[in-house]
Design a protein around this nucleic acid. Structure first.
Lengths: 336, 336
DNA sequence: TTGTAGGCGTTATCAA
DNA sequence: TTGATAACGCCTACAA
């Protein structure tokens, strides 16, 4: 039995099995040239002693940590927990481990990146915004980086994205066809690129359709901000709009709740609300959101693959894969 | 500038700065004895070259990875994303990194634990069930383990728990005082200890109060299972109960939605529903759940501390800290 | 197929 | 305060 506290090394196994340390090492390397006899002997002893190769030591020599960092900053947006699970499982299946970095504030990014470098992760998936300068550090250090639903203007980076503009246009078209003529928009934080794309996707299409004077109110992707934004929206308008377009599902839910319970406006009869993401909560029958469903599993899988490809082959050029969202016709909007 | 691909080591810094490698090492160790002149010289060069100490190499010699594993299996229960964020931030603040392990199936546990050993984490927080045998491995290897809301019967382990029984008794008392007399219970999976404690906490108190024949239906903590369980509950009863007690918030939400939208039963007028957890979604105004609020931040903080204390001092005996939940009187139950 | 020996990038020990 | 030198536990030529 293992003496508690002291860890079993390949030397211990080698000694007990009466072989060399490198023999032990080889037995744990898939596809190494070892005789069956040797393998059996070593594995038996290893099991007895409870030996597990030390991944830290292995990383040091192979220069591969088999760890990737996942950076996420906005957990109040329920889309991100769902994403994290998908990413985590995708990596797990490939024997890669996830170091999680959750940001409290954007300003913490640099400190966090220092940690990322130190831990020698093989790659990074970021669902948080990084500056051009920060991205440059990744290149300098040769650490592959894949953005999730963000990108940098005029700067090539790898990214998995949902086509935000297109999705919003689908929504606007559908609402317009159904006869909605006055609109309000609840966006995310002004520094959010996703919010910019969604908001302007909607506004552009509205303008094309001849809809003018669309008020835009800023939220922060959270439920409470959706509620507050709806209040603000109403204050700024003579009468409630036909439809409110929200930059994500959670704010749409907040908006619906505010309309229904604070202002006794019935949704969808008197007001239509649409979101974006296709989160599980949006499908709950109190909401049944009309929204754009991002193909989460597919996008997460693509992100995992895109990153690991670049870990294998660092020379691969930056690539963007953009997926179309699917219009989910729920019951939060009047559609006929 | 750094040559891309090649990483900068302390030797590189030492060479350029014209000092020994160990001097460089010392400059990065807080509280080491280094002259100001030396430190300035080294740090300047380090910054120029973009040197960051390799945490992997450091871990190898110090036998401290500064990483902890967090194990979570049930992400459809929205309590867990919230917990993960709190844990992650707590560890981050202390300079400890989180390796995330999400389980798809209970059967994956052993494979996952192998990975945990290999990565030499300093400790583990588990919000998933582990067998007695698995827990024993932690002891043998001297890896501190702290359970979150689970424990093992007749086997000492460290754990942070919410007092499930007490919480349920608070709920039952409150409902009974308000005049409810017939009940239904929606539990979690039968192998879930938390579910057992919550369910039996409620049932015990009901029995004490003279309430008999309380039907119990099994769910899996998810929204859909809450809905399905409510259906099943109704089928098995002559008439709807006064109140349904659900083992967590998400199932309570599913139960409410099913009652309201499938059966046109108004909640709370005709039916009371209570949950457990105090998740953010439960507070949404479509639900305003009456529930037990687990003091999440406090419990997460306690878990972080309890684990790191044991990392510092492995001799500390197992300890359980149990926190009382707070009755949140929402509007999903008639309370007068 | 197996063993020997060197090195991965740190920290720790001990002289100087 | 500084600099050699030996670990840490593993992988990998290379030699046997």
């Amino acid at each position: 039995m293992t003496e508690s506290g002291k860890r079993v090394t390949s030397y211990d196994v080698a000694r007990v099995a009466g072989v060399s340390q490198s023999a032990v090492s080889r037995c744990f390397k898939p596809g190494a040239s070892v005789s069956k006899k040797m393998r059996d002997k070593v594995m038996t002893v290893a099991r007895e002693l409870g030996f597990q190769p030390n991944a830290i030591a292995r990383s040091l020599i192979t220069r591969r940590s088999n760890m990737v960092a996942v950076i996420i900053n906005n957990f109040t947006n329920l889309y991100y927990p769902e994403l994290l699970v998908q990413l985590s499982r995708g990596f797990d299946r490939r024997g890669v481990h996830v170091l999680l970095f959750t940001l409290e504030q954007e300003s913490d990014v640099d400190k966090m990146l220092d940690q990322v470098w130190q831990y020698q992760v093989d790659g990074v998936i970021s669902a948080a915004r990084l500056s051009r300068e920060q991205v440059t550090f990744f290149e300098e250090r040769g650490v592959p980086l894949v953005f999730y639903n963000r990108a940098l203007q005029d700067f090539p980076v790898s990214a998995i994205c949902c086509n935000q503009e297109e999705g919003e246009r689908l929504l606007v078209n559908r609402l317009h066809t159904a006869g909605h003529r006055s609109f309000g928009v609840i966006g995310g934080p002004t520094d959010s690129v996703v919010s910019y794309q969604r908001t302007h996707g909607a506004l552009d299409r509205l303008r094309e359709l001849g809809v003018k004077n669309v008020p835009v109110v800023e939220g922060d992707y959270s439920y409470d901000s959706g509620r507050a934004a709806f209040r603000e929206l109403l204050q700024g308008m003579k009468k409630a709009p036909d439809a409110v377009i929200c930059a994500n599902d959670v704010m749409a839910i907040g908006c619906m709740d505010a309309a229904r319970h604070e202002f006794a406006i019935s949704v969808p009869e008197a007001l239509s609300v649409v979101g974006f993401d296709g989160t599980a909560t949006g499908a709950w029958s109190s909401y049944r959101l009309t929204t754009i469903d991002q193909p989460l599993e597919i996008m997460a899988e693509a992100a995992v693959n895109m990153l690991l490809e670049r870990v294998e082959n660092p020379e691969l050029p930056p690539e963007q894969r953009t997926f179309s969202g699917v219009l989910l016709e729920g019951e939060s909007a009047r559609l006929d």
